[in-house]
Amino acid sequence: MTSPSASADTLLGTDNILEVDDLTMYYKTRGGYVKAVEDITFDLGKQTALGLVGESGCGKTSVAMSLMGLLPGNAEINKGSIRLDGDELVGLTREELRERRWRDIAMVFQGAMNAWNPVYTVGDQIREAIRYHWEPAPSVEVANARIAELFELVGLAPAMLERYPHEFSGGMRQRAVIAMALSCDPKLIIADEPTTALDVIVQEQILKELKKIQDDLGMAIIYISHDIAVIAEVTEQIGIMYAGRLVELGPTPEVFADPRHPYGLLLLRSTPSIKGPRRKLAPLVGEPADLVNPPPGCRFHPRCPLAEERCAQETPVMEEVSPGHQVACFYWERTAELDIEGV
C-alpha cells in the first residue's frame, strides 16, 4: 500500500499515477447547470486500487468520464487538473485525448452487457483497439495471439475470439471486456460498476480475477460502485462521494470499519450485503440532493442527523482525521455516536 499523506506525494511527484486536483465539472442543461463534480481532489498511487462509492446519481460516472476525456458535448470542466503520470489531461485537444484513451486509461463500463457491438466478433473489436494504439500496428496474427493470451488470463477459451457477442453469456462478456481493457497495457483502468448486472457468484469471481490480474500486471484501478462491501476486498483506498463532492477518503479497512463522515456511516449501514460483518440496517432518509440547485453549505446537511446551523452556511473542506484518512465534515468526531444509536 503506497498511500502516505497526499502532500508528501505531490512534492515527490513520482509515486502517483494519477493526481486529481479540485476537479469541477458541470453539465449544461435546459434547467440549469448540473453540478455533477465539484472540487474533487485525490491521488492514486501506482499499482493501487481506489474505490469510489456513493448513491446513484452522485457523480461517480461523471468523474470517470472526466478522467477518460469522454465527456458529452454539454459537459464543461470548469476548473481543476488531472495529471496522469505527470501529464496534464485537462485542456488537451480531442485528438490528443483520443490517442491516450485505452493506451493510458482503459475502462470497463457500467452496463457492459451492451458494451459489445452486435455485428462484429469479439476478437474483431479487441483488435480494433490494438490496431489504433500499438506502435506499430501489429498483424492480425500477432494481435490474435495477444488476445488469446488475455482471454486465458480472464478465464475465457481463446477460441471464443472469433465468436459474436450474442454467443457470450453476461459473465463471459464482462470477462472479454476486461481482456479488451488490458489489450493495450494501460496504466490505469476504471471499472465503473463492472459487475452490477451479474449474479453474486460471478461478480465475486470476476473481482477476484481482476485483483489477481492487477497484482500480476501492476496497473492502477479505480473501482466504482454504490456498494462499499463489494469493493472493500479489492481496494486499498476508498473515496465516498455525495452529490458531486468527495466527503471521505481513506484506507479501505479504516473507512470500512470506522467511517467518519455521517454519510459514509449511513451509506455503509443502509446497504444490505452478504459480504462484510452482519449489521443492523439503518435507513438513509430523505431524497438525494438536487444537483442543479444543491443545498448550500454541506450538501448532505438536509439529510444529516448531526447537522447544525453552521452546516447550512459553510462548506466543510477535507481535513485529515488520521494518517491518510480525510473527511469533509465539521462534526466528524461525533459520527461515532450515530453508530451506537443505529445499532
Binding site: R98, R103, N117, E128, Y132
Partner: peptide, 29 residues
C-alpha cells in the same frame, strides 16, 4: 445512444471509425 458506441469511443479509435464502423453499420439494420 447505444452502450457500444460509448465503448468504441472509449477505445480511443478515431471518431470517423466510430461513426462508420460502429454507429452507421448498426443503423443500417
Amino acid at each position: 445512444r447505444e452502450d457500444y458506441i460509448l465503448t468504441a469511443r472509449a477505445k480511443g479509435i478515431p471518431e470517423r471509425v466510430v461513426r462508420d464502423r460502429h454507429a452507421a453499420r448498426n443503423a443500417l439494420l
